[in-house]
Design a protein around this nucleic acid. Sequence first.
DNA 1: CTGAAAGCGCTTACAG
DNA 2: CTGAAAGCGCTTACAG
Lengths: 336, 336
Amino acid sequence: MGRAERKRPATLRTIAQSAGVDISTVSRVLNGSPEDAARAASRETADAIREWAARLDYRPNPHAKSLRTQRSNLVGVLVPRLSDVVLATIYEGIEDAAAGHGLATFVMNSHDRPAEQRARTELALSRRVDGLILGDAHHDGEFTGELAERRVPFVLVSRHAGEHPSVTCDDYLGGRLVAEHFLELGHRRAGVIAGEPFASTGIDRTAGFADRYRAEGLEVATVHSGFDTAGGHRAAERLLTETGPTAIFAVNDFAAIGALGAVRDAGLRPGIDVAVAGFNDTPLAAELPVPLTSVRSPMHEMGRRALELLITVLNGQSPESERLAPELFVRASTAR
Amino acid sequence: MGRAERKRPATLRTIAQSAGVDISTVSRVLNGSPEDAARAASRETADAIREWAARLDYRPNPHAKSLRTQRSNLVGVLVPRLSDVVLATIYEGIEDAAAGHGLATFVMNSHDRPAEQRARTELALSRRVDGLILGDAHHDGEFTGELAERRVPFVLVSRHAGEHPSVTCDDYLGGRLVAEHFLELGHRRAGVIAGEPFASTGIDRTAGFADRYRAEGLEVATVHSGFDTAGGHRAAERLLTETGPTAIFAVNDFAAIGALGAVRDAGLRPGIDVAVAGFNDTPLAAELPVPLTSVRSPMHEMGRRALELLITVLNGQSPESERLAPELFVRASTAR
DNA sequence: CTGAAAGCGCTTACAG
DNA sequence: CTGAAAGCGCTTACAG
């Protein structure tokens, strides 16, 4: 019945005894740099050690290593919600890059609530992460400012705040691309579903869009909303009844899907009577019944780059922030 | 320029020196059970110790603790893809429950590929997890069988395999609920988009659906597909041209969304000419332009329960598997 | 090339 | 009630 005891994993000591050498030699051969290893033992001794390690299925104990080296090789990641596919994909990029560097990551939800951001960060710190990647920075920069003051190594991803190192999409440019597309189609009365006011993504996308319209002497109507379908639906309803735009830019695909529904509910045809564009080009966008025009942001790549950026921070440097290029994909929702 | 040195965190030793007591007393007061703490020091000593701990912002070093106790309080979670909102939501449930038990979790993608399942599992084991939660079990039970043989503590979530402890939705019942709904609407020619053949979710949902039709003397057409929109689109196309069903059950909301598109592309009206139902009731379902009928599975709760189940396994027990109840939400996509 | 020793920060029998 | 000691599994100066 009850589970049998799992046998204790091999340690440096086990191997040292088997191979008849000192534990420190084993450490250098198995876990040291190649130069260390070469200098630590003769070819034969080293081979014998490696042979034993393989036979005993040795794996270095990370807790012992961390305790000794004062480095956990752990990175904590904060996101608003992991069930948001945008953040999940960014996290996948972080994870990929981390694995390539021998780093482990763990991710936590903050729900964009300052109290949870703080609590989760303290949790990560108490787990002795080497650094943090924040995907939930608020534009006011309050919390990130505190962290910087405490000398906690961190970088931002997806959103920027203050002067802290970040990897983002060039959201301003992305918004402008949509505006240009709309203007080419002849839409002179446009609305923006601008997302949450504390996220630089929504702020920049909206600004890029509105500035381009303003350059034509046109003002755009703006409504804030949650980054989700229901929020987009409500925002589009307001836009439709209050200002009657012929084109709507939602700064997020999910909000755009909600807008699509609101357009239809108003008895209008998306893509024909009212153009709708989103942002991020999530996998769903192209597959919707009315395929959605969207600005693709390199989510996976942003995650990868953020991890690389954190590594430079951990090396004591102060790296430049990066802004990755967006790309517009035109589909039936802005067909006319 | 360069970041200032972060000051070393307080340790038991720091506190012991400040409070003028032995380090072991501090340990018992701060990290021991309440009884230990009570027995270890007088009220005043204990209070003094706690005061110092607070003042010095003491946080136990988890690596030292894990090294000493041979318990990491770490749980590894494997999922096919975190960017699948179903698995992301389940993981959120796991995370929530884990936090409540003082456990930390980390999650990895296996992409449903056996080689990656193995590699990620070894990685988790080398990080000395206390146990694993697998959200990517394959129905053949090959890999899970190996793990059980090695006495690795684990539970399954979302999918079941073999006799291993699992927390799933009652997928068979979920499939039957859809069949009953379709039959009530008078659909006698139905098709199923059955998902991947290695996932118990798709298998059970399909079986529950088909068995109910069979009880009426009716056979259903079945096509396998990926659990994504593109796969659902292709599968629906095949179904539509080959057998011309009046109702399609996709075992996954994303596949259902693809089916919605295929129906429309075929010049048919979803919900009027062809009924379409999905599974999981992801947040999008209710918000689609044509709201999607779907079977809600308690994703978050499944995650929570899986973590609880793992804890009983870690306590050496052999718990019963759990099947949570699904619930059908009828919407416009099966309006007639 | 190889070893002996100290120490990272904890917990926990053992002793009083 | 409190302390002294051993040890978890590593790494890394130091010495030869």
